[in-house]
Simulated scan of single mutants.
Amino acid sequence: MASPPAPSERLRRALTHGGVVERYRAKVSIANTNECWFWTGAVSGRGHGRFWVEDGFVIIAHRFGYALAHGVEALPPTLAHGCDEPLCQNPSPGHLSPSTNERNRAEWAWRRHTPGSPLRDARGSRERATQLRNAARAGGDVEHVAQLGLLPVDRGQHPLW
């Protein structure tokens, strides 16, 4: 019995399959091309989008989007969200950038304590992501929903990075 193709090969195949790409794009809400593009599909426990590419193959949605924009060869082991929104699918620098696991965790820990950071949301990453996803799906005010879980000291603070 033949073994299943490697994940990179499955991803490469999916990126050339119009139906898969169309299904991915249908789950991305773009209100402004320079801002976060919100995932409107399934959400993981850590607040990242989950995308079922094919039977038995699920990928973090922003990894699929980054590979779609930049190619499988450009996909690093770790992608960092400079915007600190796990649902963000915008493949532009400042939103998604190659990183290392160590650097990504260190930046998360530092920014988790920075006033105004989405990482300080009292709802937790999954609940925040679920509420943002629902607002994006409904065409609602995503910015308002983003502010709801922040403490008063964090509301209206501009990012420091």
Rank of each mutant, 00 (worst) to 15 (best):
N101L: 15
V153E: 13
A69M: 11
P4V: 12
T100F: 11
R128E: 05
A136H: 01
V28F: 15
E102M: 11
H62N: 09
H70A: 03
D121K: 05
E102L: 13
E73K: 01
R112I: 04
P93F: 11
E85A: 04
E54S: 12
R133T: 00
T114I: 14
G149R: 12
L68T: 03
H48L: 03
P152K: 07
R10F: 14
R128M: 14
L150N: 14
S29E: 12
P152G: 03
G124F: 09
R128K: 15
A2W: 06
F38D: 05
L68P: 01
E143G: 04
V20F: 02
A6S: 12
W108T: 10
A106F: 10
C36I: 03
A2D: 07
S29W: 15
T100S: 13
G82F: 15
G18V: 06
R46I: 02
L75C: 10
L150Q: 09
E107M: 07
H113M: 04
G47Q: 15
I60Q: 03
L15F: 07
T100K: 10
L160F: 00
W108E: 12
D55V: 08
P91A: 00
G82C: 13
H17A: 13
P7E: 02
E107R: 04
H95G: 07
L151I: 07
E102D: 15
L150K: 08
P4Q: 09
H113W: 10
L119Q: 10
A106G: 02
N32Q: 10
H62E: 02
D141M: 08
H62Q: 06
H48R: 03
I30K: 13
T16S: 08
G41N: 05
H62C: 11
H113T: 09
P93K: 11
G140H: 08
G45S: 15
L87Y: 01
T33M: 03
P159V: 12
E85H: 08
G139C: 10
E85R: 04
P77I: 08
Q89W: 03
R103F: 10
T114Q: 15
E73L: 01
S117E: 06
S8W: 03
W161L: 15
R63C: 01
T40L: 00
C88Y: 08
D84V: 09
L132Q: 03
V28W: 14
L119S: 06
H70E: 04
P159G: 04
C83F: 14
S8M: 02
W110V: 10
S117N: 11
G41Y: 00
L148Q: 13
A74Y: 05
P115T: 12
G82W: 09
I60Y: 02
L160C: 02
A6W: 11
D84M: 05
G49I: 03
A136R: 00
G149F: 12
P152I: 05
R120S: 15
Q157F: 00
V20T: 14
E102G: 10
S117Q: 12
G56M: 05
P77N: 12
E85W: 02
V153D: 15
V21F: 01
N101C: 06
D121R: 07
W161R: 10
R46Y: 04
P115R: 13
C36V: 04
Q157T: 08
R105F: 01
D84Q: 08
P118Y: 06
P76I: 07
H158L: 09
Y66W: 07
R103T: 13
R10L: 08
T130G: 06
G18T: 15
N32G: 07
R63I: 01
S92N: 13
P7N: 02
G116Y: 07
R13M: 05
W37M: 00
K27P: 00
H113P: 02
